[in-house]
Simulated assay, not measured.
Amino acid sequence: MHLLVALDDSEPGWAALEFACREHPDDEVTVIHAVDPTNSSYGEAAHLGPEVLLERQQEASQELLTTADDRAADEGCAIETETVVGQPSDAVVDYAVENEVDRIIVGSHGRTGFSRVLLGSVAERIARQAPVPVTIVR
């Protein structure tokens, strides 16, 4: 089985990686991090320029994925890692389709009520759009 773990630098994201390693130690696990060049701090894109901003996001992603590789190894789990560019939920679903993924594992902050409506939920959008089963870990 080919599993895809969508990782952000949050406790639920790390919980998703730990779940994949603990529950599927013998399966193929790919961990991806989506960088969204349209998501930046106030004025960052205008100040740095879109190319520099994307480069910095990709460098941060590589550091995150290196940490993921180390943490997976500590769990006795071998993973592949990749950075994808785009709006996170769309990028995760697109990757799953293009790479014959059997299941997506993603962390969720578990927001409810107004904060969920206001902020949206990447995990929920992935679950709604994905053509494969999605496991949401909290």
Rank of each mutant, 00 (worst) to 15 (best):
1 M>F: 05
3 L>K: 13
4 L>E: 01
6 A>I: 02
9 D>K: 05
14 W>A: 00
15 A>L: 11
16 A>V: 00
17 L>T: 01
18 E>N: 12
19 F>P: 03
19 F>W: 07
20 A>V: 06
20 A>C: 15
22 R>M: 15
25 P>H: 14
26 D>S: 12
28 E>K: 15
28 E>Y: 11
28 E>G: 07
30 T>M: 13
30 T>S: 10
33 H>R: 04
33 H>P: 01
37 P>C: 08
37 P>V: 04
41 S>E: 05
42 Y>F: 09
43 G>N: 03
44 E>L: 04
44 E>T: 11
45 A>H: 06
47 H>G: 13
48 L>Q: 05
48 L>R: 06
49 G>M: 09
50 P>W: 11
52 V>L: 10
54 L>G: 05
58 Q>C: 04
60 A>T: 10
61 S>N: 02
62 Q>G: 15
63 E>A: 10
66 T>H: 14
68 A>K: 06
69 D>C: 08
69 D>S: 09
69 D>I: 10
70 D>T: 14
70 D>L: 15
76 G>H: 15
76 G>E: 15
77 C>T: 08
79 I>P: 00
80 E>Q: 13
83 T>R: 14
84 V>M: 07
84 V>K: 05
86 G>Q: 04
92 V>D: 01
94 D>C: 03
95 Y>M: 07
96 A>N: 02
96 A>I: 00
96 A>P: 09
102 D>L: 14
103 R>E: 14
105 I>E: 00
106 V>I: 13
106 V>Q: 04
106 V>F: 02
107 G>D: 01
108 S>T: 13
109 H>E: 09
111 R>D: 11
119 L>F: 12
120 G>P: 06
122 V>K: 03
122 V>S: 00
123 A>Q: 00
123 A>C: 11
125 R>T: 01
125 R>W: 04
125 R>P: 10
126 I>A: 01
128 R>E: 09
131 P>Y: 13
